Amino acid sequence: MSGIDAAFLSRGIAEAAALRTDTCRITRPGDGERTRNPATGKYEDPEPVTVYEGPARIPSRANSPAGSARAADGGSAAWQVSDFPLDLPLDGPGYTSGESVGPGQTVTWLTSATDPELVGRVFGIVAPARQTYAVARRFLMREVVS
């Protein structure tokens, strides 16, 4: 590796893993057609497919738009739209075989070691975040709150 050795990168991966004290579940839309529920008369989407469930964190990013909030409106409705980084392990347990984490999927925060208000919050993955010498899989996620 030019300029960086494998031991240094391994330490970075271990340090990033130690910071992932929260857990999340990432799902994609289910396969198949919507079906009509005879009890309610409403159409329902297929059950979502779990792509990943395991350790995660929302890292702080100084001088970054991630974590920034902005107002949005449409007609008589108003929303607060916020972007956040998402940090997942590079690989290993938690990933569903044959599935990939990516844009258009939903992130549901399951546990948080330091912020109980994160639990139950739902985000959408907007884009992957690429970097050289990655020590984590990173994505940009968005939360929309009315």
Rank of each mutant, 00 (worst) to 15 (best):
T96W: 01
R36A: 06
L118M: 12
A17Q: 12
P103V: 08
R70C: 08
A66K: 02
P59L: 11
L110A: 04
G12N: 15
T111S: 11
L19I: 02
E143C: 03
L140T: 08
S100F: 08
A7W: 07
V126T: 15
C24T: 00
S146A: 14
R36C: 06
S2P: 11
F123K: 01
V119P: 06
T106A: 02
A66E: 13
G67M: 12
M1L: 08
E33T: 09
T40L: 06
E143T: 01
E15I: 12
R61W: 01
G74D: 14
P48R: 00
R142W: 07
G74W: 11
T27S: 08
F123G: 02
F139E: 01
D22R: 02
V122C: 02
V51I: 12
V144I: 15
W79A: 15
V107H: 02
Y52R: 00
A77K: 10
R142S: 15
E117A: 08
E99W: 04
R138P: 06
Y133D: 13
A78H: 09
R121I: 03
S2C: 04
Y133L: 13
K42L: 14
E33P: 03
Y43G: 01
L140S: 08
R25G: 00
S2W: 04
D5Y: 04
R57S: 09
G92Q: 05
R34T: 09
D91N: 11
Y133N: 15
F123Y: 15
I125V: 13
A6R: 11
S100L: 12
V49W: 10
Y43H: 09
T21G: 03
L9W: 07
F123S: 02
G32Y: 03
T23Q: 13
G12A: 15
P59R: 11
P89W: 01
D87A: 10
Y43E: 14
T23V: 06
G98V: 09
S60T: 08
W109S: 00
D115W: 03
A78R: 12
G30R: 05
P89Y: 01
Y133W: 13
S82V: 02
E99K: 10
S82Y: 02
T114Q: 13
G54Q: 08
A71E: 15
Q105K: 06
T27E: 09
A113F: 07
T40W: 05
I26Y: 00
P89N: 07
T23Y: 01
R142G: 12
Q105V: 05
S76P: 06
E44R: 12
A18L: 12
A78F: 03
V122K: 04
T132K: 11
L19M: 10
T23W: 02
W109L: 00
D22Y: 04
P85E: 09
R121K: 14
R25P: 00
T132Q: 13
A18P: 04
S64A: 12
V122R: 12
P65N: 10
D5V: 06
